[in-house]
Write a protein that binds this DNA or RNA. Structure first.
Lengths: 252, 252
DNA sequence: CAGTGGTCTAGACCACTTC
DNA sequence: AAGTGGTCTAGACCACTGC
């Protein structure tokens, strides 16, 4: 016996978690992204195809995709389709670098890798990963310059299980952004990050590489970056000279 | 001659700007907010009422409201209705104060108003308003303490045309947040802000009020806050001690 | 119980990209 | 011309609030 007008919430089979349909589908998409079924830059199926696959309406698929687009995990291109977001795009170039000059403009940076080694890390580094003092990390040290002047000195720490193959040669041969490299060579896409900002006197190494007086206050920025599923995959500690540049933030 | 199925984009009268319908309606709502037709905390008409008023479907109204909700201009309460966002709520208490302690927690602050005068302002203050060196501003100086220790010293500048009536007595009698006061006494609702952050040596006044050494680096935070329509309505310059606290930011 | 926002559907048509 | 996302509608039902 089939009624013409079906009742709406007919989830007779495997009701997930009392989440609305679009949220359940969003979770499935997140799993596809996390598992690498959908890879950075790739085209995903059309909304109508997905609607057919999951046996829901286009509107429900749209709402799931909408939220992922707002989180910068997917990108829509009218006429072409929906794609997995990537750090290769021009657009995302400065998403994770909140640094501007006095005029409020972003500038092109020149980056120099100072070292890339495998070693143990301090507690502030291994703690966010729930790892231990003996665990080995990839350690990158980098200097960023603007108009030829060094401005940012940073130490970047990556867990070996994911980034063990990273070498100095690879870093130096890579022209794009670091997150673009992580994505294309290690399949790790950074989705968001948390930063803690302090004013400090520069470390001895920062004094040396940034070529500044040891009494010049600098911004100290501690970042933990995450991939899909809120999984931490990078810790970095940076010092910024803030005489001709500043950290900017929009509160909305 | 009337067809049963009307054609969809029948904007025969006054086609606005080639914006989609929901965007046109969103603009009308923004005008209502800006003009004070809808005031902070008030209930706005139901979605079905609005749909009838503007002769569109509920879905179109929803999409317009959705965007305003995401911008924190409106708040939905299922079963009750949709309300104009306000700074009186507990939720928005720390939206504009990105300050946490070493454990990453927000703390309750004790605020002390040091002065409230009417005077001319420096260029960095009047420039964002497109005003002039001779124009008079309300100038508030404030000290914020956490657990009894002074942490934030700030100068706040407000244009007289809007805030001329602000007095020291009013400030001291007000228990809530500053933005809550601006909203309830002057009808000015802050919607967003931009901050520029530097590391500097503290000003002489900051040294005095924060009770710190003049060589201790502090965060210097320059903020311009805006109301509806991207209109700047406040400039503040703050210095934060960042030894036991930090500025935090989430990049997403 | 009436009214509100929240979810979901089915279907139409528009705007854009690609071939 | 075919296919994709973007807009819009009309209507149903669910979940919650307040009287």
């Amino acid at each position: 016996m089939i009624s013409i007008m079906q009742t709406k919430y007919d989830n007779s089979s495997e009701k997930h978690l009392d989440l609305p349909l679009y949220a359940q589908i969003k979770l499935k998409f997140l799993i596809a992204l996390e598992a690498g079924v959908w890879k950075a830059g790739e085209l995903i199926p059309s909304e109508l195809d997905l609607a057919a696959s999951y046996e829901v309406s286009q509107g429900t698929i749209r709402k799931a995709i909408d939220e992922l687009v707002r989180q910068h995990l997917l990108i829509r291109r009218q006429g072409s389709g929906t794609f997995v977001a990537t750090h290769q795009e021009e657009q995302s170039k400065y998403r994770f670098l909140h640094l501007a000059n006095s005029a409020g403009e972003m500038e092109e940076s020149q980056n120099k890798i100072l070292l890339c080694t495998h070693q143990k890390a301090p507690k502030v580094v291994y703690a966010p990963f729930n790892m231990h003092a003996e665990d080995i990390f990839v350690h990158i040290r980098r200097l960023m310059s603007f108009s030829g002047k060094p401005v940012v000195f940073e130490d970047i720490w990556l867990p070996c299980p994911l980034f063990g193959d990273l070498t100095l040669e690879l870093l130096e041969s890579w022209a794009g952004s670091l997150y673009g490299l992580f994505e294309s060579h290690f399949g790790v896409h950074m989705t968001h990050a948390e930063e803690r900002i302090r004013a400090v006197l520069p470390s001895n190494l920062a004094v040396e590489y940034l070529e500044i007086d040891q009494l010049l206050p600098v911004l100290d920025i501690f970042r933990v970056a995450y991939t899909y599923g809120d999984k931490p995959v990078e810790v970095r500690q940076a010092q910024y000279i803030s005489t001709e540049h500043h950290y900017f933030n929009r509160i909305s």
